[in-house]
Design a protein around this nucleic acid. Structure first.
Lengths: 111, 111
DNA sequence: GCACAAAAACTATATTGTAGGACAAATACA
DNA sequence: TGTATTTGTCCTACAATATAGTTTTTGTGC
């Protein structure tokens, strides 16, 4: 089936990978905002994460209670092997499309 | 409105940039296939190109006759400044998400 | 218990991605 | 000049992704 990853999906997967044991909705969202300046809505995050899980790209488990005031139990995500492969491939493909033309792109985009 | 570029859109823009004066439907498609192994249908190419043009990311002009046997006139595409900026930004964002975690990704994807 | 905080899930819609075949136009050649 | 051949684009329809906003759940502190 769908081996392809959209742009946002790739970002989510990179965020999950980077966050390791602390990857759940809120931190993932924060990470994307920090690194890219984009501010996706919570809904965007969860919906996409769910789709990725259905496709076997990520897995999840529900965490236990925490000593913090409030807070629903977190659902922690991790990258599955299939997700890692798909992400590596998607990244490489874009890399190949970009190879060699980045200087020209910088020029044109007025850097 | 939409400043964002999807995955496929980015590929098209990179192809247009690379091909320079020879960027039209058929060559763009061939370039993507060569570099990524993906084989998008003609329809995918033209539809996406048209959307990108409506958003001001690319411009086009229709070419003249050629000394080659047959063949409809080509529509040549070029990157507009807005397209270059959007592409540079999209690329940079992904780069920032990927920074530092690529080694781990290689591991997990079984390289 | 009850108020409050944190996080996730649901619902609905807009935007992207995609295929495949119909159509158009240009040249060669009888 | 007219018809076959070639190259390339456009049309139509549909599937998948992206996204916001609102609601629900669950845990803590008092």
């Amino acid at each position: 089936m769908g081996e392809h990853l959209g742009e946002f999906e790739q970002m989510l997967l990179f965020a999950v990978l980077r966050l390791g044991d602390d990857a759940y909705g809120v931190t993932i969202r924060r990470e994307i905002e920090r690194r890219t300046g984009r501010r996706p809505s919570p809904g965007a995050i969860y919906t996409t994460l769910e789709r990725l899980e259905q496709r076997g790209m990520v897995g999840s488990r529900v965490g236990g209670a925490t000593p913090v005031r409030g807070g629903r139990r977190k659902r922690f995500y991790h990258l599955e092997p299939a997700g890692a492969r798909a992400l590596a491939m998607a990244y490489e493909r874009l890399q190949r499309m970009a190879a060699g033309v980045l200087p020209r792109l910088q020029d044109l985009s007025g850097a």
